[in-house]
Amino acid sequence: MSEKKMLDDQHYEEMIQEESICINDNIVYEAPKSALYDTPMHYCPGCGHGVVHRLLAEVIEEMGILNDVIGVAPVGCSVLAYNYLNIDMSEAAHGRASAVATGIKRVLPEKLVFSYQGDGDLAAIGTGETIHTCNRGENILIIFINNGIYGMTGGQMAPTTLPDMKSTTSPFGRDVITMGAPLKMTDLVAQLPGTYYVTRQSVHKPTNVRKMKKAIQKSFEYQKQNKGTCFIEVVSNCPSNWKMTPVESNKWLEDNMLPYYPLGDLKTPDGK
């Protein structure tokens, strides 16, 4: 183990100046500039919402569809998504994002429309809208952030809360006998004929982030071809309401969430 020494700012600057390779030609990764505003996001440190916003912005820039995309923000922590994404967006009442997205897509069929929803939004108050949107096979993309909890309102139990998981409304842990088992929305919508591409991803590791980006890319491609509803679940974290550090929350996610919500494609065009 090499001994680490904390460089003070002056040393750091000297180090950069010595022989800087930080020139534009050498950039391998930089934050999206046009689709993502340069404002700090209000999300708690380490929250998966930020990563998904960034990936959406990256895909929108890379596909050159900045002026062709319309998003629908939910009620939940990501209610202010339109403050960060430099695209046309609409707000929807709690749970109704996929219904609003349906309306937008039907009026403007040449636009690429997506809804961005949490698990309280999509799987509790909006279950009906979600299932019917998928059943009708609306040509939209639904992004479903599953952090197993109501984040914005302070950590109440969601339909996706794991068995025995504690929340403010299940202080002794979720009892599946009285509260039911966690709802696997993604498995449910994969059964419906209207969905074309259904997948479960996460953003807690670099490889997963890369896969998630590909899933968004594919979904917009399919939407261009009018194939039907694309549905991406993102198994995500909520360090604040899980009462963990971000690093711990990702570890917990891997150990507890992923066995119940296994990652991978549930429905693909070639039927694998």
Binding site: C22, M41, R54, P206
Partner: peptide, 14 residues
Amino acid sequence: ALVCPDAVITVYRQ
């Protein structure tokens, strides 16, 4: 940079 939720890091490679 890939895992950063706040798009803070720019990466360069020689």
